[in-house]
Design a binder for these strands. Structure first.
Lengths: 250, 250
DNA sequence: AGTGGTGTAGTGGTCAGACCAGTTGACCAG
DNA sequence: CTGGTCAACTGGTCTGACCACTACACCACT
């Protein structure tokens, strides 16, 4: 039987109140990026709390990426790095790994990266195209080096995200690729996986260069479908070799 | 001239080391969810640091959603709530509002929600469909109540994300809708916006019920394109009325 | 004037010890 | 078995202290 009254007031701790207050000031731009916060001692005094409380509040905001603590110097408001936003997301994914995790990741990756290819084909700068070209070359040179190939592969998709000229795509992509890196390495166990992947990337780049956005999306979707299969095959190869367990999924 | 040597070692603080260590234990499941951590005093002693350090480490992990602190009782490992992952993302979006923010949000929302509609049409349970139906009804009853309508609208899209049976979609959608709520309210300033939106949702639900995944995607994409225009028009109405500024975009 | 050393005040990092309020669980009286 | 009591423990907060480091003003030398 479910508990009645599982309410719990637990009125906010002091450090929580201080953290919220400071965060509000930062979000509302009342303290601008780069500005220095009053020292912990002064903050404590002016807020009527102990330095302990102020420190714990600052710790939290620092961990959220809003503050930068420079020992011996002071605490400063900081522009939040995108990485901070992705990191928490990534942590969540790490903790909630399910058997379906890889499939779920591909299901969200598909539309996101498809759109990325579409937009990048319309908006990529010369610099973007150059960068993408270099990364394809790097993949070509790393056909026999699984780690190097995977790194270049990830870098290619990241560069493509940047080429959309929309800052949200790199943000969304990062935790996804981070979670899939291990799986991507596995897929290198399948024969010709690298060569096949390279082909897709070359086609994608070609479509992108000729500004064929629908074509770019199409190639990307095919690539991802293929990659998903390879990952599953690669995983099954490992599990066959490693433990002789059956894998009825395939 | 760029700085040479802008390296900075800033070797990790003690509380950082402790936090990393504890987080590793949690991620590796060496301390399982629900388990109780040793008391701060015991942890401090066994790690050879002061209680201050342990507390600050625990604060950080608690803020990341890994720990739940029950005063007078102890500190426990906790399953991270999805909301924690979205919150940091949301904070980032709040801090990096750009003039293009709304457009960027729609650019990522389009493929994600399109895929959501597609998958939901294939996988929605009876319960999902019922819930979606109720929300459409609620929208219909709230045609003259902008706030109520927007709430029902958001709830519909959230329910749709759940109906994909892929936990990542609700996760991705939340920060997006949170950021767009204000903009959605603005769009209610445009005549017949609600009635138009309701129509799309009804069509979408119909496609979903007959299992027409491609149709559902199509309706969703049309709906979002329409919504984006309405948001822009709504914003311009406000700025016209509010400050008589020109809006050359339209 | 420019250089480099030097000292001092201020900052965050860490520590130790204390008290409070709340929870827990064992114990006991009814 | 119930309800109350009490001691032990937990996290929350406070205080005051010391450390290492930074910044900055000052000064002595060139």
């Amino acid at each position: 039987m479910g508990e009645l009254f599982d309410i719990q007031l637990s009125r906010d701790r002091l450090y929580t109140q201080v953290a919220d207050e400071l965060q509000a000031l930062i979000v509302d731009q009342q303290i601008k990026s780069g500005e220095k916060l009053p020292s912990e001692r002064k903050l404590a005094e002016s807020l009527g709390v102990s330095r302990t409380v102020v420190r714990e509040a600052i710790r939290v905001l620092s961990d959220r990426g809003l503050l930068r603590i420079k020992p011996g110097c002071g605490t400063f408001v900081q522009d939040m790095r995108p990485q901070k936003a992705s990191a928490q997301f990534e942590l969540f994914l790490k903790l909630n790994k399910s058997p379906r995790a890889t499939q779920e990741l591909f299901e969200v990756r598909r539309p996101i990266e498809g759109q990325m290819a579409y937009l990048a084909a319309q908006r990529a700068t010369e610099q973007d195209k150059q960068k993408l070209g270099q990364l394809v070359d790097m993949m070509a040179r790393s056909l026999d080096d699984p780690e190097g190939y995977t790194d270049a592969d990830v870098a290619f998709h990241t560069a493509l995200a940047s080429a959309t000229q929309n800052s949200l795509f790199p943000l969304l992509l990062q935790p996804i690729t981070e979670m899939l890196k291990a799986a991507m390495l596995l897929s290198q166990n399948v024969a010709d996986a690298s060569r096949l992947g390279l082909g897709f990337h070359q086609e994608l780049l070609a479509a992108l260069i000729r500004g064929d956005s629908e074509g770019a999306r199409r190639v990307m979707l095919d690539h991802l479908d293929n990659a998903e299969q390879l990952v599953k095959q690669g995983a099954s190869v490992v599990s066959d070799v490693g433990s002789h367990q059956e894998n009825k999924e395939l």
